[in-house]
Design a protein around this nucleic acid. Structure first.
Lengths: 164, 164
DNA sequence: CGGAATCCGCCACGATACTG
DNA sequence: CAGTATCGTGGCGGATTCCG
């Protein structure tokens, strides 16, 4: 099994009731974070999206995703299966055939995720602009610092030659 | 600066038009994934949620989050600032005072995220059930395999004693 | 074909110390 | 107070090999 997100089943009990915003933010360690990590996983989201069209075999997924290693595909599918987001059905044929499909639960999650994707698409312009502005500001500050350093060095050298 | 999500500004151009689902899934490497990683980041979401109430100082955030290191808080805030989700204002007082606040863009993102949190809260029961069932199945299979192995070993030993 | 098991590189993160 | 700089490390992910 290798790891498996730890076998602790239920709560984490970490919630000390400091602030009320933390009602779902601190306990993120319990449930929300688990799902969030699954969604944000490099491959999970891709698998969910692909399975949303139709059920697929292991090798089909492997080919479609292209950059993925068999190890990661296996792990990803196991995790999704464990969370009840993907169903795994083995056909006892030879050679063996395994089909993966999205469960109803997985389908609703995919819908929910789409909202986030939509948000990103709608605002990616603003984000790109913000990044550009930020990077330019940083570059300008760095250059200013560099010039100041050069000036200080020039002054120091000048003082040195004057002493001789 | 240390890293900075690479300074490549625009597209990734990785999109080979194989399937149409990949229209936003393959190019995830370009924009969607960036935001998703930011959201799924261990601390970013927490910071966004806390700043949704009111603007906060560096140390306030540090105390409220509790498990975070100063390094990670700095990095997180820088990333959020770069993406235009959080604004940073320095008050030229002594001692220095720096306030962080959610930008309008960040606020809309927070709203969008809430949908995902809501989904998780609504379905965490199903997920927990699925995990339980999965783990029990795995445990059962492992035990079955162990018993089978023990039986084989017993047979082998029996055969061995018979040969003497 | 569909995995499981093993080895290993890399970097994300934490702890620590220092600066303005 | 609000950071930057440096070092040490655990774990994630990839490559490879073997199994049913």
């Amino acid at each position: 099994m290798e790891d498996g997100t730890s076998e602790s089943p239920g709560y984490c009990g970490d919630t000390d009731g400091d602030y009320d915003v933390l009602q779902w933010d601190t306990r993120e360690d319990c449930e929300v974070r688990q799902i969030l990590d699954r969604v944000a996983d490099k491959w999970s989201l891709l698998v969910i999206a692909l399975l949303d069209r139709r059920s697929l075999r292991f090798t089909e997924l492997r080919r479609m995703i292209d950059g993925i290693s068999q190890r990661m595909l296996t792990r990803t599918l196991r995790h999704l299966e464990r969370d009840g987001l993907v169903s795994r059905t083995v056909h006892p044929t030879v050679p063996p055939r395994v089909d993966y499909a999205l469960t109803p639960l997985g389908a609703t999650l995919h819908e929910t995720i789409r909202a986030l994707v939509t948000w990103t698409e709608e605002h990616q312009g603003q984000i790109a602009a913000a990044r550009g502005a930020f990077d330019r500001r940083v570059a300008a500050e760095q250059q200013a610092a560099a010039e100041e350093a050069a000036e200080r060095e020039a002054l120091a050298r000048e003082a040195l030659t004057a002493r001789r």
